[in-house]
């Protein structure tokens, strides 16, 4: 039983990311309202960002800023600092996510103008006509 708790609690960050991921996926695939699909998409991307950010963390580590600056010859204890690389990557991913959101919203507006609705089934009806 303890193993199970450890399995779940010890990796809570991954669980959170996976739950969010599934919520997002559900929203994108199952929702009829296109705006809700977009929201699902955003959650989906946020889940991945969360996942990346959490893997950079280390137990008892601090933010990766060197106290002493340049010029000192003190050895740097890598374990004492969080890994900055995933965070940096996610800066890019956030930008990508925002751009996608922007394009999606713009197109959504266009859809509304053409079809007069953003409900998927109603849109399909107008296309069939």
């Amino acid at each position: 039983m303890e193993d199970l708790f450890n399995y779940i609690i010890g990796r809570y960050n991954y669980w959170a990311a996976i739950i969010l991921l599934l919520i997002g996926l559900y929203g994108m695939i199952a929702k009829n309202n296109l705006l809700k699909k977009v929201i699902g998409m955003t959650i989906f991307q946020a889940a991945i960002i969360l996942f990346y950010v959490s893997i950079g963390d280390k137990r008892g580590a601090t933010i990766p800023i060197l106290d002493h600056g340049h010029g000192t010859h003190q050895a740097i204890e890598a374990a004492a600092y969080a890994n900055p690389l995933p965070h940096v990557l996610m800066l890019t991913a956030i930008v990508v996510g925002v751009s996608t959101l922007g394009v999606a919203l713009a197109i959504l507006q266009k859809i509304y103008r053409v079809h007069g609705t953003i409900e998927e089934d109603e849109i399909l009806e107008t296309i069939d006509q």
């Binding site: 994108m28 296109l34 699909k37 998409m41 394009v103 197109i107 053409v114 296309i127």
Partner: peptide
């Protein structure tokens, strides 16, 4: 095309 593109975005 807008609707088709939206599907593609998703």
């Amino acid at each position: 095309a807008y609707y088709a593109t939206f599907k593609y975005i998703i």
